[in-house]
Structures are given as structure tokens and as C-alpha cells.
């Protein structure tokens, strides 16, 4: 039986040693390791590469290998970025030895190694991105002047002070506010202000 060639790409020698010590106990894996992209350039692409998340540039050097990225206590956005970059799976480095072996074998069966917790976190991150893009689309409907008005509305300014700040009539401010509510699909100034503040938090609105 041909052994599966597993390559460890990690800058931490002690971690590589631990993974190697576990995997060499399995008869179906042939393990090698590199600690830098320079070293990676000089090795044959493996069947499976276990790549630390700090080695984003490794994808181009790994040919057709299955790439599993991993990191300590991964954040959802890290997982999403890695999968978008081409990773076939993502694992927490805190995984047990038996969990790692199961994940590697599952990959060979065509499954994507991703813990339940990370899968859920990734879905949440995707939903958050969808919400951000919807918010962005609604805000994009606003004219430059309406954005200025909305910024002041979000600060709690009354129509009279907005009119004074922007050197326009109060009647024009009212018209702008009506347009803002209609375009954002909300019924109140408070709701429009909340949308603006959310957008600021998510940096959808450029300030």
C-alpha cells in the first residue's frame, strides 16, 4: 500500500516534532517537514500539507496537494480567509492526535476536515458578511448630501440644526430625511441612525 505523504509547514520546531511523533506511529503516513517558505520551495509537493495559518504564501508552492490550514484558537475570519484562498480544511492546533489522524483519513475519502465549532463559526461569518453587503447596498442608494444629513441624524441633531450646519433650508432637510427613510426601508430617524452607526462599526461607511 502506498503511504500518504504528509508535509508539515510550520515555523515552530517543537510543534512539528509533536505532530511527527504522533503521525509516524501510523503505518499509512510518510511525514516530512519544513519551517519556512524557502525550504518549502525545495521539496516535492506532498499528498497532504498541514500548513500553519501564517504561511499564506504556501498555496502556490504546494501543487495539487490537499491543504489543511491550522492555527491556535482560530477565529472565524481566519478560517473563512483560508478556505477562500484554497484550503481544503481548517483545524485548531489544539486538536487531539486521534482527531488529526481521523481528519487526514477523512480528507482522503473526499471529506473536508473542519470541526463542528469551526463550521458553525464559518457559517456565522458568512451570514455577517451577507448582512454587511446588504447594508452597503442600501447605503449606496443615498446621495452624498443624504449621507451628510444621515450622519447628523445619527448624532441626534434636529432638522433646524442640520439645516444650519449644512446651510440649507429646514424644508430641504425634511425632504432629505424622508428620502433617507424610504431608501433605507425604515420608519424612523432613530432606525436610520442605528443603521448608520452599525455601518460605521462595520466600516461600510467611509468616514
Amino acid at each position: 500500500m502506498r503511504r500518504t505523504r504528509v508535509l508539515l509547514v510550520d515555523a515552530l520546531p517543537l510543534f512539528r516534532a509533536g505532530v511527527r511523533l504522533h503521525l509516524v506511529q501510523e503505518s499509512d503516513f510518510d511525514v516530512s517537514e519544513v519551517g519556512s517558505l524557502r525550504e518549502l520551495r525545495s521539496v516535492e509537493p506532498p499528498d497532504i500539507a498541514l500548513v500553519d495559518s501564517s504561511f499564506a504564501g504556501a498555496f502556490d508552492l504546494l501543487g495539487d496537494a490537499y491543504v489543511i490550514m491550522w492555527s491556535f484558537a482560530p477565529e472565524p475570519h481566519e478560517v473563512l480567509t483560508a478556505v477562500r484562498a484554497g484550503a481544503h480544511g481548517y483545524l485548531p492546533k489544539e486538536i487531539s492526535a486521534s482527531g488529526l489522524v481521523r481528519a487526514l483519513r477523512a480528507l482522503q475519502r473526499g471529506e473536508a476536515p473542519l470541526s463542528r465549532a469551526l463550521a458553525r463559526a464559518m457559517i456565522e461569518a458568512l451570514h455577517a458578511q451577507k448582512a454587511d453587503s446588504e447594508l452597503e447596498a442600501r447605503l449606496a442608494l443615498l446621495s452624498a448630501r443624504e449621507r451628510e444629513v444621515l450622519e447628523l441624524v445619527a448624532c441626534g441633531a434636529r432638522n433646524s440644526s442640520i439645516a444650519e450646519s449644512l446651510s440649507i433650508s429646514e424644508f430641504t432637510v425634511k425632504r432629505h430625511v424622508q428620502n433617507i427613510l424610504r431608501k433605507l426601508g425604515v420608519a424612523s430617524r432613530a432606525a436610520a441612525g442605528a443603521i448608520y452607526r452599525t455601518a460605521l462599526d462595520e466600516t461600510v461607511v467611509s468616514v
Binding site: L14, F15, L21, H22, E94, A97
Partner: peptide, 13 residues
């Protein structure tokens, strides 16, 4: 140790 993959390397070292 809280990282099983590292634990074995520490003990081995």
C-alpha cells in the same frame, strides 16, 4: 500542557 500534539514533544524532549 493544553495542546496534545505539543505535549508528546515536550515529554519526549
Amino acid at each position: 500542557s493544553h495542546v496534545p500534539l505539543v505535549t508528546v514533544a515536550i515529554v519526549d524532549a
